[in-house]
């Protein structure tokens, strides 16, 4: 009897044995299986829902990792929204500051200049300046 034939015969014997089990044994086996599964379910940590967009590495165990990042994951979909909002405010603030600095530098120069303010503030003076520009070679 070669190895394959031996394996086949063992399988046959086991299958026949299983089929011959009486219903009480089958019932007990099923109950034991159900009890074991229930115990396993109770012992395992509670299911933790993770957001589709999560900040931690996808493979990291959710509860075993540091508590510091937990609140970030708790934010779920609000986290990218929060980041976007902070980004918008930062850009807006930066642009406004740059514009204020530009105006301050320009006004400082206008105030230090000797040219008459009432002329500068008049659009007609702008027309005269343009005319001077055309004369200039």
């Amino acid at each position: 009897m070669n190895q394959d034939e031996f394996a086949f015969r063992v399988r046959q014997a086991l299958n026949e044995g299983a089929e011959r089990l009486d219903y009480k044994t089958v019932l007990r086996l099923e109950q034991a299986r159900a009890a074991a599964l229930a115990r396993q379910r109770r012992a395992s940590p509670a299911t933790v829902r993770l957001p589709a967009l999560q900040l931690a590495p996808a493979g990291a165990p959710p509860l075993a990792s540091g508590g510091g990042a937990r609140w970030l994951r708790g934010l779920g979909w609000a986290a990218p929204l929060l980041a976007l909002a902070i980004g918008f405010v930062a850009i807006g603030h930066w642009q406004k500051e740059a514009e204020i600095r530009r105006l301050a530098a320009l006004d400082f120069a206008v105030l230090l200049d000797d040219g008459p303010l009432e002329a500068y503030a008049d659009r007609g003076f702008g027309a005269l300046l343009q005319a001077e520009r055309r004369i200039e070679p």
Binding site: D113, G115, D122, L129, R133
Partner: peptide, 14 residues
């Protein structure tokens, strides 16, 4: 004020 800034800059191109 906006005109003054504009004219001031224009004046200094001459």
């Amino acid at each position: 004020r906006a005109t003054a800034r504009e004219n001031f800059q224009r004046a200094y191109t001459l």
